[in-house]
Design a protein around this nucleic acid. Sequence first.
DNA 1: CTAGGGTTAG
Length: 742
Amino acid sequence: MKSKLRSIIDNGGLVFNQNVKITQLGKSGRIQDALKVFEQMTNRNTVTWNSIISVCSKNGRISEARRLFEAMPRKNLVSWNTMLAGYLHNDRVVDAAQLFDEMPQRDLFSWTLMITCYTRNGELEKARYLFDQMPERRSPGCWNAMIAGYAKNGRVGEARILFDEMPVRDLVSWNSMLSGYTMNGEMGLALELFSRMEERDLVSWNLMVQGCVESGDMDSALDYFRGIPNPNVVSWVTIMSGYARVGRVVEARRVFDRMPERNVVSWNAMIAGYCQNFKIDEALKLFKEMPERNSASWTAMINGYVSVGKLDEAKELLDQMPYENVAAQTAMISGYVQNMNMNEARRIFDRIDTRDVVCWNSMIAGYVQCGKMDEAMSLFKQMPRRNLVTWNTMIAGYAQAGQMNEALEIFENMEERNRVTWNSLISGFNQNGLYLDALRHLASMGREGMKPDQSTFTPCLSACANLATLQMGKQIHHFAMKTGYSSDLFVANALITMYSKCGRVSSAEQVFKDIDGVDLISWNSMIAGYALNGYGKEAIELFNEMESKGLRPDQVTFVGVLSACSHAGLVDQGLRLFDSMIIDYSIDPLAEHYACMVDLLGRAGRVEEAYQLISKMPIKANAGTWGALLGACKMHRRLELGKLAAQKLFEFEPHKTSNYVLLSNMHAEAGRWQEVEKLRRLMKERKVDKQPGCSWVEVKNRVHSFISDDSTQPMTVEIFDTLQCITMHIRNTGYNPEIRLH
DNA sequence: CTAGGGTTAG
């Protein structure tokens, strides 16, 4: 009797010890050893099973975890929760939801786990629904999960409402809220909250350091770091990564050397820091001498080689890895993707046994980058589950490929969208010339409660510029001001172009003046804006100002200033600038620059010189260049040269009606009706349609469009009367416009 | 053995 009891106690102790062993092995990633211990055990209890399930799922072996879960003789509530946690760790939201439904009973852990599943997946509405459904929520745990969920998805306001509402707050609640602020760049609010905290732990302090690091403010980060009573590894690593991130890798190394204790994360962070600063040799040195490596160490190193284009070295490292790891393999895939080598990328991808969303997404991004949308779509269909990044990548891919219908179809099939989704779609519309669609979706975005940011405003303003719709442009300007994005440089530059193209040079000037820290794009936009509106002198003055400030103009700057010269008839200035571009700035002129010069000389009647310039061009002339010559020939009635220019143009743009019409009119002016007839036949042969001209004007925020010969326009008579009137005025000022009504 | 806050890699 006595010995039997003894053996039960001993056995119990043994089981307990072995359960602990399994967990420990799992934590150090030694899953094989953990499984071996489990298999060799003769008397397992429920905790044994729960432990091994936890170990498997935390090491990515989720299907094995599920098999064990099915196989275990007796399940308790912790078993169910452990399985649920397993799905959480492996981003298997759908499976988690199913398990959650099947559970015989639920406790606080179960609910909180499921809520976290949804928030991690960005499905905040579902998470919130569960949160509201919970039968019992006095403890702060579930509140904290919900707050963190909002915080991680950038919805700090909603997080704060819950934080203020909750009945009992613990330290984790405060820290969750604090992390919401620090992770979303709200350092002012973070500081306010931090100073109100009655109790702070290392997490609170580390969050403040991290927040400063994220906003690039290393001075404040260091201040907080120094204020920490007993900094731990996390604090040290945070400050070290901060230095590495802003390029101060020497200081990062000094922090690394001074760290009182180092774990594998410290080493990894230092390696990653060196890699970010392209000091691969230093990284490799550390990698070789570090006492213990995990998958992050390998991945960081592989990624380092990839970032400097040394793919062979990266591959060698990947092959040397003692075990396979998705992240490392994905880093390698990204390397091949950068080199547009989809075959090698595919080879790596095909041999990954447990593919996660990120590696699928990387492959899809690769195909997208190569313009292979069919391949991307095929993977998209095959993958077992998709996340927001997947959907957004597909939208951006189709947009880039000019397939906006497909992009829209993806968009419409999405259950959850984020700002990136909307921005991809809107900028896709803009890039493909569907300006009205871009603006329409800006409106729907607002209706769905999604706030626009700089990446929304920029394409929308560009759409307004292309439509020359001043009213809408102004509205968006106000909207951007109200939301604090009008001072964003990209937005401001887009505003300059928008106002310029709408003919409001003074508004463009105002925006330009208000920018602090203008960049090259700002200068270029303003110069082009002057040029477009015929302000030649101002364009050149701005160009001179730019030069006097020691700024280096680029190709785009010269397109602007040269076209300004041509529009304003400043021939000598233009010629001087063209020379200066080549000699002083060593910029090889593009076809666009030649087009400006041909236009400039041509308008001034120096048609022969214009032609000489084209003949001597070291690069191939484009349609713009020949078009400028044809225009000049038309203006100065140079029929023979005009014919030549037109012939060249027909090669570039065989279906562009205006070229044919221009040449035809030249023949008509010279009374060569046979040639006119010949051209007409050629157009018929080539199926060139004479498309009706279209124009539009905006009156009181409504766009009115006009098509030539359009009798449906209700005010045709008035319009023609006004047109005649304007023509008369223009004639009186000495200009003789050529008017050919339809 | 299961949840909620902070560090490294894709």
